[in-house]
Write a protein that binds this DNA or RNA. Structure first.
Lengths: 196, 196, 196, 196
DNA sequence: CATGAATGAGCCTTCATTCAT
DNA sequence: CATGAATGAAGGCTCATTCAT
């Protein structure tokens, strides 16, 4: 590979991240070896350490990056929408779209929390809580305006999030149902579920 | 100590299974070592092989056992109930209860599919499909009787299952919401979601 | 190798210790690899861990063992001798003999202190102090009886110990000077040095 | 900062040498990594190779440099002194002073001989022999003049050198005994030891 | 059945060294 | 001269598994 001064490092790191997402998604973090990763990127195992601190660090980096992006994106998606029902619809559409497009990140972000060191896990869990809160607020405001009937906000939010997130365990872009249909189906299920 | 012939072995295997569920749930299958497992059971690592074939075999055994029990139990729970709405309610109550009581098995059964050898995985996936079909049938029959409005049976079933299964990632028996409340909340969410 | 029940483990550990002494003496602790050690003993590297905890542990074990033996032996050698000059002679003869016969242990015990973890090092340094104190006491008693003239007990003890210990860096059993001659030469040097 | 042509390089090399002495003295040659060394000097590891050939080369350079200086210095110190007893006193005073002031060099020079490649080791051992010979000559001449009683010149020389060199394993400039006192103590021990 | 000891493969990581920029 | 990125070898250690006792 030819190196273009200064850019090679960043490109390699990007390739490591990309391959890392793939491999962790396929085999799980514990089951992925840095040898595999290095081979996939075209490096010797030791060379990875020019770009990452440790294997654990790579995992944290991937998940953290994902969470930060997720938070920024949801705020973007909800920006300017005030009406609770519309906000809920926007949330659903956004969540599904994002989870379809970033299956790997999302999957890793929830299934590999367990592999994070306590300190790292706490940071991620806090960010995830932030995201959950976006939905809780929508539900609460809808309930306040007598639009929704919510018995327990957090339980309901978890239930809805679980439903919407489930998609990334089976979604196949080549499947028979297209993206918009999926959004419609889920929107109907959730919305009817919470409406008064 | 003299050993009651034939009984010690079964007790040991039961202890291995139990400890296996704990450890895989805590650390994941790949991250659990047979040394840990042996220690937890009070054996030397090598002695495990008097009770299990391989580590992979233990995993399959645990998941398979869980799936078979799950299927038998759901049939039991739905037995005698004909009316679609009642059947759906029964399904929801059963699924939640079972998933609350067997967090470990359920969690492992979905998160460690990845660690199963292809042949084993196929067997489990088939059983899971059987279980999903129970819900699909309920939805289909309810739709046939014009009670439910279902755009896509399998997608809806996955969505509902994801929602109901999500509980085992956060349920805490000492939490503020009791089991019946959880069933009520989820029943309302799901039922309203699918009703015409 | 045939295994005689129960004894194989201890023999293997003894072989590991022996080879460890050799290799550390030859190459230094840091420079000795467990692969080398395993090869020398006829094992796979991982099998060493059936007998030792860690590489560090092996080092500590070797040095600690040496120090404990050294202390027991000097007390034995001095037992029953009261007169300071005779005690000093006995100390010199013992020290030289022991250092000639256990070149490796002695050498490692002083040159690899640096490779011990702080906690381990502290334990060894304490034992070494005990040994030094045996000489200090002899010098002090001799001075009290006006037999010796000692300006500073500890400095003198260190000087004498350094002189006597030096032998294990160059002693060659096939050399031209025999053991008794060496003892005589050193006894004269030390004794004249401290006599009033 | 602009670099004064040709001077920066030498300063860097001096810094590398200095840091090398420190690190080898602290951790031993094998245990010191060029990464540590580079960090200490404020360089990247690769940059060291603009100043040194190899790690082994650096070690040889440090030890060789030390030996050459040592030889030049002892000749300086003995220059003009003819009388054997006075020469021996001068030797003792010089050796102690030098070893106190260059603890690191001296320590490395003896403890890391083992890490030198055979060819390099041979060169150093030859220089060391030269130094030992200075003492042997003094002893021999003293014996010839019936001032000393020496049974075996080389053994005696080794014993004396070991005693005097031992100081650099424990000497602490902030300790309770000052330099002159140390010289006096050792001079008495050695001189009495060899006098007829 | 359980044990202790062995195997062989593999793990993450560090190292000295090289070299295009 | 310095840097950043690469190499290839090796490091200590853990693992699932086997098997004589």
């Amino acid at each position: 590979m030819t190196r273009t001064a200064g850019s090679s490092g960043k490109k390699t790191l990007a390739a490591i991240r990309e391959a890392g997402l793939d491999l962790i998604h396929e085999h799980g973090f514990e089951a992925m070896s840095l040898r595999q990763l290095a081979t996939r990127v075209g490096l010797q195992p030791g060379s990875l350490y020019n770009h990452i601190e440790t294997k654990q660090d790579l995992l944290f980096d991937l998940i953290h990056n994902h969470m930060v992006t997720l938070l920024a994106s949801i705020d973007d998606a909800l920006d300017g929408i005030e009406e609770p029902i519309e906000r809920l619809k926007a949330f659903i559409a956004f969540h599904l779209t994002y989870h379809i497009e970033r299956k790997r990140e999302v999957f890793i972000g929830s299934s590999e929390l367990r592999s994070l060191e306590p300190k790292n896990r706490r940071k991620i869990v806090a960010l995830r809580r932030d995201y959950e809160n976006r939905l809780c607020e929508i539900l609460d405001r809808g309930a306040a305006k007598k639009l929704f009937k919510i018995d327990d906000t957090r339980v309901s939010a978890y239930a809805i999030l679980a439903m919407l997130t489930g998609i990334c365990t089976w979604y196949d872009p080549k499947g028979r149902t297209n993206r918009q249909q999926l959004i419609d189906i889920h929107t109907r299920l959730v919305l009817q579920g919470v409406l008064k």
